[in-house]
């Protein structure tokens, strides 16, 4: 079996609320998250806003330290390593952000933006760096003379290409893309999506692809990870999630996407206000207040993640039909 390039085990991230009154309140941004990403594969992370998708991305690229749990790159737990070793490890995991314009420095030319990671992380001389910048630009479908221009001279799609070039320049194995398409137009989205898929084939990259667009997710991913309020809801192969989702939340997401509405059945029952209030205070399933199948047990007890024929589901009553 191939070794996963990136794996996460029981990752938990908590934030403490500020102020004396709330000193005992702890918010779980991520709660016990585990997954594995094999080389050349794409893992999509799906969920509504506030479900902890971006928090997860930050832990993966090392821009934030988890409260507990492990991040394994090439099978090694990065937080057991020394700081300099860890930095080397994180060279293999790079990130592409949602809004390309705000993630590029408006003051510096594209060339120097792309050069910077090389200056920090490698011992290349300036000629080698130029060469690397040139290659990266070509790879994403831009020309080398673009290196002397500023970010505002490019369209949104080109800016996103530059952001991808910056992620590629250290020759990583994994790219974490946080909603890379949502700031772009439909026709440009298709261009960038094709670029990402071509690069994956050429360079055997793995992607962690964060998105809320289920059409795109189905198109690009091998595995899908559905989150809600920092919890794993469902995790499985793309076919499993889209054809036989077992979690009510996944069905909810699918049934609210126009193209899928006719293929997925979802009970449209609304819980009574009393039940909702109880659910908000309870320590049970975070989705209980919105779940049409919720019962008392869901309020009392947080469901365990079960493994049903390779598909992981966190629910007391997984739907099987």
């Amino acid at each position: 079996m191939t070794e996963p390039v990136l794996a996460v085990e029981n990752l938990t991230k908590t934030y403490r609320e500020s102020g004396w009154r709330y000193r005992n309140h702890v918010t779980y941004a991520l709660n016990n998250i585990s997954f594995q990403l094999n080389p050349g594969q794409t893992l999509a992370i799906v969920g509504e806003s506030g479900s902890g998708k971006s928090s997860l991305a930050r832990q993966l690229v090392g821009s934030d330290q988890p409260t507990s749990g492990k991040v394994l790159i090439d099978g090694e737990d990065v937080y057991q390593l020394s700081a300099s070793e860890r930095k080397k490890k994180f060279k293999k995991v790079r990130m592409v952000f949602q809004n390309p314009y705000s993630s590029l420095n408006p003051h510096s030319r594209i060339g120097s933006t792309l050069e910077e990671p090389l200056k920090i992380n490698t011992s290349m001389n300036s000629r080698q760096r130029k060469e690397a910048v040139h290659n990266a630009l070509q790879r994403v479908g831009l020309r080398s003379e673009h290196a002397s221009r500023f970010p505002h001279m490019f369209s949104g799609g080109q800016q996103q290409r530059i952001a991808i070039a910056r992620a590629l320049i250290l020759e990583p194995e994994v790219i974490v893309a946080d909603e890379p398409l949502s700031a772009l137009d439909v026709s440009v989205q298709a261009q960038i999506l094709n670029l990402l898929m071509n690069l994956q084939e050429e360079l055997q990259l793995s992607y962690v692809f964060i998105s809320h667009d289920l059409g795109v997710v189905e198109h690009i991913s091998d595995q899908v990870f559905v989150m809600y309020r920092g919890q794993l809801m469902e995790y499985g192969e793309v076919d499993q999630i889209f054809d036989q989702s077992m979690h009510p939340y996944t069905r909810r997401l699918l049934s609210s996407t126009p193209t899928y509405r006719h293929t997925v059945e979802y009970l449209n029952k609304v819980n009574s206000p009393e039940f909702k209030k109880l659910a908000k205070k309870s320590n049970g399933c975070p989705f209980a207040s919105r779940c049409p199948y919720a019962e008392q047990k869901c309020l009392d007890q947080m469901p365990k993640t079960r493994n049903i024929s390779g598909q992981r589901v966190t629910c007391h009553w997984p739907l099987q039909d």
């Binding site: 794409t42 439909v186 026709s187 440009v188 989205q189 298709a190 261009q191 999506l193 094709n194 898929m197 071509n198 059409g215 795109v216 189905e218 198109h219 690009i220 991913s221 091998d222 793309v238 076919d239 193209t259 899928y260 293929t263």
Partner: peptide
Amino acid sequence: DSIPHIGERHHMGQRLYSL
């Protein structure tokens, strides 16, 4: 054509049409 449709999954190796 630039919108991914149901059932067109990645392992079919299909690329989206784009202008």
